[in-house]
Amino acid sequence: MRPPVIACDQLSVDLGGVRVLENVTLSVGDGDFLGLVGPNGGGKTTLLRVILGLEKASAGIVRVFGGLPGSFPGRIGYVPQRLFFDREFPISVRDLVLMGRLSKKKLFQHYNALDRTRVDEAISAAGLERLIERRIGDLSGGELQRALIARALAGEPELLLLDEPTASIDPQMKTTIYDLIEHLKERLTIVLVTHDTALIGRYVTKVATLNVKLELHESGATAGRASLSGVAAQNPVFLNP
């Protein structure tokens, strides 16, 4: 049997003396689409960072593709929150997406024709063909978010981690981004961190709420929405925009 894509067992994480995650046990299988919701500061981003190998577990075990986190950068696509880089950076959409090929290349190796083909494919999957030469500073929030998803896709990942891809995007754009992600779930395992409890029910196969401790809700696409409204009722925080 293949190992689960992500397996956390009794995972705890302390950051600066504060317990951010406690006793998180979680298994994400091949083809799953996990929606991760919870209040700000609940540890959602930290859990992604542990899976990526950017943060160390204080206790417990984490395995990604059966190995230690960070062992298989080429199999993971990561879409970070888009706030954390300089929008004035002189880089085109094409070169941004090309960065997604980094994990497939060796040190000193330059990008080649195959990389450029994969980039073109990822850009058309994200519907950004017209903007390919555009400087990222000239993109709208929704377009930039699509470009970041294209960057993750260009690396041909098996697992896609998205950290609040729809934060500070207007509602219409949100739906188009979810439609794009929906399209991907047929071929990828996806973990999606989000605040949009009302929107994701349609898309995910599993939902977990994370507020230091993790609570996994029932599986199955149709159950998602019902369990989420239950979650929202118990945690008024979610109802705030």
């Binding site: 970070p80 880089f85 300089d86 880089i91 980094l102």
Partner: peptide, 10 residues
């Protein structure tokens, strides 16, 4: 551009 993304890419 983004040191964290670079680290994630190995």
């Amino acid at each position: 551009f983004d040191e964290e993304y670079a680290a994630v890419s190995g």
